[in-house]
Write a protein that binds this DNA or RNA. Structure first.
Ligand SMILES: [Mn+2]
Ligand SMILES: [Mn+2]
Ligand SMILES: [Zn+2]
Ligand SMILES: [Zn+2]
Lengths: 146, 146
DNA sequence: TAAGAAAACGCAAAAGTGTTGCGTTTATTA
DNA sequence: TAATAAACGCAACACTTTTGCGTTTTCTTA
């Protein structure tokens, strides 16, 4: 799509077919993506090293950010492209991790409100991790409801 | 120490020398520990597999809990031994991760206050991650202060 | 639009973390 | 003290991620 090419240019990334497709996958994705999930979406036609390098580049340029994952995998979500750049990622939002499907969802500011009082440390960024059962898993597995 | 042996018994873990030492390391540690850091503290005299299995056991029995880590490593901190057990871990506290030294600190309840409004998900647990510069790193690297 | 430079790519190898199987040792229980 | 269970060391393995290098593609600019 035209928009995706324009974004890659703006963030200083060469417009290869793979990177255009990768960006559009992130735009379509409601939650977050692991390397393996991306590999699957390309029907294993792309080299995994290429995926790793693209993700690292996207992250450095401010397109995507890592999200917490219970299985210690690298997992990424699209940034707010207005507030992130090669210079700095600016994230003040929470993440929801589903016990059942392991997906990580970004939560927007309206979903959570945080009030923090002081400690001895200098806080530059924060991330609230909520754990539980996502809407999809909850509706299909009422056993977990209480 | 006597206290550590008593705790291991109470949580159903055999009192081997290594596990006694491991527990006391966790008691001494102000922040959190990776497998590698534990390996170093034993001067590489202990097999890494033994460390992995001890950590898994400690976690299952309710002695330690995993904490978030920027490098996707397994990292653990001591639990509040009054509120955690083999049956369930009960954590509602935040963690502070230092950009400079990578250490993860547990924050007690008085440090943070969280108010969360609803989303479509069912929340079972939460963990607030604060990022920035810890007191030690901050005092030695004033360049980061602003 | 045709070089030349820079970025991205594929393949192979390696590094790093964590797991599993199995025989042996150590601790607990009775 | 003998039987049982837990913990241990070693070797092998699985898996994710990184690095090196030569090739291909994209970008720049003249
Ligand atoms: Mn970002
Ligand atoms: Mn706990
Ligand atoms: Zn789910
Ligand atoms: Zn620090």
């Amino acid at each position: 799509m035209k928009k995706h090419k324009e974004i890659l240019s703006r963030f200083g990334i060469n417009k290869t077919q793979f990177r255009i497709d990768l960006l559009s996958i992130f735009f379509d994705c409601k939650s977050s993506l692991t390397t393996h999930e991306i590999f699957e979406r390309f029907n294993k036609k792309i080299n995994k090293v290429t995926i790793y390098r693209a993700l690292k580049s996207f992250e450095q340029k401010g397109l995507i950010h890592q999200v917490p994952d219970k299985n210690n995998l690298k997992k990424y979500s699209l940034c707010n492209l207005d507030s992130c750049s090669p210079d700095s990622h600016n994230h003040q939002h929470g993440h929801f991790i589903c016990y059942s499907c392991d997906q990580t969802f970004c939560l927007d500011d309206s979903t959570i409100k945080i009030i923090k009082t002081s400690s001895g440390h200098i806080v530059k960024n924060y991330n609230l991790i909520l754990e539980g059962y996502c809407t999809d898993c909850n509706s299909s597995q009422t056993i977990f409801q209480n």
